[in-house]
Design a protein around this nucleic acid. Structure first.
Lengths: 96, 96
DNA sequence: ATTGATGGTTTATAAAATAAACCAAATTAC
DNA sequence: GTAATTTGGTTTATTTTATAAACCATCAAT
Protein backbone atom coordinates (compact mmCIF):
# COMPACT_ATOMS: atom_id res chain seq x y z
CA UNK A 1 0.00 0.00 0.00
CA UNK A 2 2.57 2.58 1.05
CA UNK A 3 5.23 2.85 -1.63
CA UNK A 4 8.85 3.39 -0.74
CA UNK A 5 10.13 6.93 -0.91
CA UNK A 6 13.37 7.35 -2.83
CA UNK A 7 15.71 8.47 -0.04
CA UNK A 8 17.74 10.62 -2.40
CA UNK A 9 14.70 12.71 -3.12
CA UNK A 10 13.15 12.51 0.31
CA UNK A 11 15.30 15.33 1.61
CA UNK A 12 14.00 18.84 1.92
CA UNK A 13 16.94 20.51 0.23
CA UNK A 14 17.46 18.00 -2.57
CA UNK A 15 13.74 17.96 -3.26
CA UNK A 16 13.78 21.75 -3.38
CA UNK A 17 16.62 21.77 -5.86
CA UNK A 18 14.90 19.22 -8.06
CA UNK A 19 11.62 21.10 -7.86
CA UNK A 20 13.27 24.33 -8.96
CA UNK A 21 15.17 22.63 -11.76
CA UNK A 22 11.95 21.12 -13.03
CA UNK A 23 10.45 24.56 -13.35
CA UNK A 24 13.36 26.51 -14.81
CA UNK A 25 15.39 23.92 -16.75
CA UNK A 26 18.64 25.66 -15.74
CA UNK A 27 19.76 27.42 -12.58
CA UNK A 28 23.06 28.48 -11.14
CA UNK A 29 24.38 27.84 -7.65
CA UNK A 30 23.60 31.32 -6.41
CA UNK A 31 20.03 31.19 -7.60
CA UNK A 32 19.47 27.80 -6.01
CA UNK A 33 21.00 29.08 -2.80
CA UNK A 34 18.64 32.06 -2.74
CA UNK A 35 15.54 30.07 -3.54
CA UNK A 36 16.20 27.26 -1.11
CA UNK A 37 17.67 29.47 1.64
CA UNK A 38 20.33 26.81 2.13
CA UNK A 39 23.88 27.45 3.22
CA UNK A 40 26.51 27.16 0.50
CA UNK A 41 28.12 24.14 2.12
CA UNK A 42 24.92 22.22 2.44
CA UNK A 43 23.85 23.09 -1.09
CA UNK A 44 27.22 22.06 -2.48
CA UNK A 45 27.00 18.67 -0.80
CA UNK A 46 23.43 18.02 -1.93
CA UNK A 47 24.10 19.11 -5.51
CA UNK A 48 26.96 16.65 -5.53
CA UNK A 49 24.71 13.81 -4.47
CA UNK A 50 22.11 14.60 -7.09
CA UNK A 51 24.85 14.87 -9.66
CA UNK A 52 26.41 11.54 -8.73
CA UNK A 53 23.00 9.91 -9.07
CA UNK A 54 22.75 11.56 -12.50
CA UNK A 55 19.53 13.26 -11.51
CA UNK A 56 21.09 16.57 -12.46
CA UNK A 57 23.90 17.71 -14.71
CA UNK A 58 26.39 20.19 -13.33
CA UNK A 59 28.24 22.51 -15.69
CA UNK A 60 31.04 24.65 -14.35
CA UNK A 61 31.46 27.79 -16.38
CA UNK A 62 32.17 31.45 -15.81
CA UNK A 63 29.86 34.41 -15.72
CA UNK A 64 32.32 37.11 -16.72
CA UNK A 65 35.30 36.39 -14.53
CA UNK A 66 33.39 34.76 -11.70
CA UNK A 67 32.89 31.01 -11.54
CA UNK A 68 29.36 29.89 -12.16
CA UNK A 69 27.97 26.45 -11.45
CA UNK A 70 25.01 25.68 -13.64
CA UNK A 71 22.57 22.86 -12.90
CA UNK A 72 20.05 21.13 -15.09
CA UNK A 73 17.75 18.26 -14.41
CA UNK A 74 18.30 15.11 -16.49
CA UNK A 75 15.63 12.81 -17.94
CA UNK A 76 16.61 10.30 -15.26
CA UNK A 77 16.03 13.00 -12.67
CA UNK A 78 12.62 13.87 -14.06
CA UNK A 79 11.64 10.23 -13.98
CA UNK A 80 12.83 9.76 -10.42
CA UNK A 81 10.96 12.86 -9.34
CA UNK A 82 7.75 11.67 -10.92
CA UNK A 83 8.06 8.28 -9.27
CA UNK A 84 8.71 9.96 -5.96
CA UNK A 85 5.54 12.02 -6.35
CA UNK A 86 3.56 8.89 -7.15
CA UNK A 87 4.94 7.22 -4.04
CA UNK A 88 4.13 10.27 -1.94
CA UNK A 89 0.53 10.10 -3.03
CA UNK A 90 0.16 6.74 -1.34
CA UNK A 91 0.88 8.55 1.92
CA UNK A 92 -1.18 11.61 1.26
CA UNK A 93 -4.30 10.56 -0.56
CA UNK A 94 -5.24 7.64 1.57
CA UNK A 95 -8.22 8.82 3.56
CA UNK A 96 -11.39 6.82 3.17
CA UNK B 1 7.88 29.96 -2.61
CA UNK B 2 9.02 26.63 -1.18
CA UNK B 3 7.44 26.15 2.22
CA UNK B 4 9.34 24.48 5.02
CA UNK B 5 8.63 20.80 5.58
CA UNK B 6 7.91 19.88 9.19
CA UNK B 7 10.89 17.64 9.94
CA UNK B 8 8.88 15.50 12.31
CA UNK B 9 6.61 14.50 9.49
CA UNK B 10 9.22 14.48 6.76
CA UNK B 11 10.36 11.00 7.65
CA UNK B 12 9.21 7.99 5.74
CA UNK B 13 8.25 5.90 8.72
CA UNK B 14 6.61 8.65 10.76
CA UNK B 15 4.71 9.84 7.72
CA UNK B 16 3.58 6.29 7.11
CA UNK B 17 2.32 5.93 10.65
CA UNK B 18 0.46 9.22 10.43
CA UNK B 19 -0.99 8.31 7.08
CA UNK B 20 -2.31 5.02 8.40
CA UNK B 21 -3.69 6.62 11.54
CA UNK B 22 -5.53 9.17 9.44
CA UNK B 23 -7.29 6.39 7.60
CA UNK B 24 -8.13 4.04 10.43
CA UNK B 25 -8.49 6.25 13.52
CA UNK B 26 -6.94 3.54 15.67
CA UNK B 27 -4.20 0.99 15.10
CA UNK B 28 -2.05 -1.20 17.29
CA UNK B 29 1.71 -1.60 17.20
CA UNK B 30 1.58 -4.90 15.37
CA UNK B 31 -0.67 -3.57 12.66
CA UNK B 32 1.50 -0.51 12.15
CA UNK B 33 4.56 -2.72 12.00
CA UNK B 34 2.98 -4.90 9.32
CA UNK B 35 1.74 -2.03 7.21
CA UNK B 36 4.93 -0.01 7.34
CA UNK B 37 7.28 -3.02 7.17
CA UNK B 38 9.37 -1.34 9.84
CA UNK B 39 11.40 -3.12 12.46
CA UNK B 40 9.92 -3.06 15.96
CA UNK B 41 12.76 -0.95 17.32
CA UNK B 42 12.49 1.68 14.66
CA UNK B 43 8.72 1.81 14.96
CA UNK B 44 8.92 2.10 18.72
CA UNK B 45 11.28 5.06 18.48
CA UNK B 46 9.24 6.87 15.85
CA UNK B 47 5.95 6.32 17.69
CA UNK B 48 7.59 7.84 20.71
CA UNK B 49 8.55 10.95 18.78
CA UNK B 50 5.09 11.41 17.37
CA UNK B 51 3.66 10.87 20.80
CA UNK B 52 5.95 13.42 22.44
CA UNK B 53 4.92 15.96 19.82
CA UNK B 54 1.32 15.11 20.65
CA UNK B 55 0.62 14.20 17.06
CA UNK B 56 -0.60 10.83 18.24
CA UNK B 57 -2.00 9.40 21.42
CA UNK B 58 -0.59 6.12 22.68
CA UNK B 59 -2.70 3.86 24.84
CA UNK B 60 -1.12 0.83 26.43
CA UNK B 61 -3.66 -1.86 27.05
CA UNK B 62 -3.90 -5.60 26.83
CA UNK B 63 -5.40 -7.84 24.22
CA UNK B 64 -6.17 -10.84 26.39
CA UNK B 65 -2.96 -11.33 28.31
CA UNK B 66 -0.67 -9.84 25.69
CA UNK B 67 0.32 -6.19 25.82
CA UNK B 68 -1.18 -4.06 23.08
CA UNK B 69 -0.08 -0.56 22.19
CA UNK B 70 -2.86 1.39 20.54
CA UNK B 71 -2.24 4.57 18.59
CA UNK B 72 -4.61 7.30 17.52
CA UNK B 73 -3.98 10.52 15.71
CA UNK B 74 -4.80 13.72 17.61
CA UNK B 75 -6.38 16.90 16.22
CA UNK B 76 -2.95 18.51 16.49
CA UNK B 77 -1.57 15.63 14.44
CA UNK B 78 -4.23 16.01 11.79
CA UNK B 79 -3.50 19.70 11.53
CA UNK B 80 0.25 19.15 11.27
CA UNK B 81 -0.27 16.54 8.60
CA UNK B 82 -2.47 18.84 6.56
CA UNK B 83 0.04 21.65 6.80
CA UNK B 84 2.76 19.27 5.76
CA UNK B 85 0.78 18.27 2.70
CA UNK B 86 0.24 21.92 1.80
CA UNK B 87 3.95 22.54 2.12
CA UNK B 88 4.74 19.50 -0.02
CA UNK B 89 2.56 20.86 -2.77
CA UNK B 90 4.90 23.82 -3.16
CA UNK B 91 7.56 21.32 -4.15
CA UNK B 92 5.42 19.13 -6.30
CA UNK B 93 3.02 21.32 -8.19
CA UNK B 94 5.41 23.95 -9.33
CA UNK B 95 5.84 23.31 -13.03
CA UNK B 96 5.01 26.21 -15.35
C1' DA C 1 12.05 -26.52 32.96
C1' DT C 2 13.63 -25.23 28.44
C1' DT C 3 12.62 -23.40 23.84
C1' DG C 4 10.60 -20.36 20.95
C1' DA C 5 7.14 -16.73 19.69
C1' DT C 6 5.00 -12.18 20.73
C1' DG C 7 5.25 -7.39 21.90
C1' DG C 8 7.72 -4.41 22.78
C1' DT C 9 12.01 -0.97 24.77
C1' DT C 10 16.73 0.53 25.15
C1' DT C 11 21.11 1.22 23.41
C1' DA C 12 24.57 1.27 19.91
C1' DT C 13 25.81 2.12 15.15
C1' DA C 14 25.40 3.94 10.57
C1' DA C 15 24.01 7.46 7.68
C1' DA C 16 22.40 11.93 6.81
C1' DA C 17 21.99 16.88 7.26
C1' DT C 18 24.05 20.90 8.62
C1' DA C 19 27.44 24.13 9.98
C1' DA C 20 31.97 25.72 10.41
C1' DA C 21 36.29 26.35 8.40
C1' DC C 22 38.64 27.06 4.56
C1' DC C 23 40.34 28.41 -0.37
C1' DA C 24 40.90 31.15 -4.68
C1' DA C 25 39.74 34.89 -7.31
C1' DA C 26 37.53 39.38 -7.70
C1' DT C 27 36.30 43.76 -5.89
C1' DT C 28 36.49 47.71 -2.99
C1' DA C 29 38.72 51.00 0.17
C1' DC C 30 42.54 53.08 1.43
C1' DG D 1 49.74 48.73 -4.63
C1' DT D 2 48.14 46.25 -0.84
C1' DA D 3 45.00 45.15 2.81
C1' DA D 4 40.32 44.04 3.94
C1' DT D 5 35.84 42.32 2.02
C1' DT D 6 32.88 39.92 -0.89
C1' DT D 7 31.67 36.24 -4.10
C1' DG D 8 31.40 31.51 -5.27
C1' DG D 9 32.17 27.85 -3.93
C1' DT D 10 34.55 23.02 -1.54
C1' DT D 11 36.07 20.22 2.27
C1' DT D 12 35.85 18.68 6.76
C1' DA D 13 33.89 18.34 11.25
C1' DT D 14 29.86 18.17 14.16
C1' DT D 15 25.24 17.31 15.19
C1' DT D 16 21.10 15.08 14.35
C1' DT D 17 18.42 11.35 12.63
C1' DA D 18 17.34 6.89 11.21
C1' DT D 19 18.07 2.23 11.73
C1' DA D 20 19.53 -2.02 13.56
C1' DA D 21 21.05 -4.94 17.11
C1' DA D 22 20.60 -6.42 21.64
C1' DC D 23 17.80 -7.01 25.20
C1' DC D 24 13.63 -7.87 28.52
C1' DA D 25 9.18 -9.72 30.07
C1' DT D 26 5.44 -12.58 29.30
C1' DC D 27 3.08 -16.31 27.06
C1' DA D 28 2.57 -20.78 24.97
C1' DA D 29 3.94 -25.11 23.74
C1' DT D 30 7.12 -29.41 24.53
Amino acid sequence: MLKELNPLLHSELRLGVMSILLSVEEADFTYLKQETKATAGNLSVQIDKLSKAEYIEVIKTYKGKMPCTLCRITPKGVEAFEEYVEALKTYIYRKG
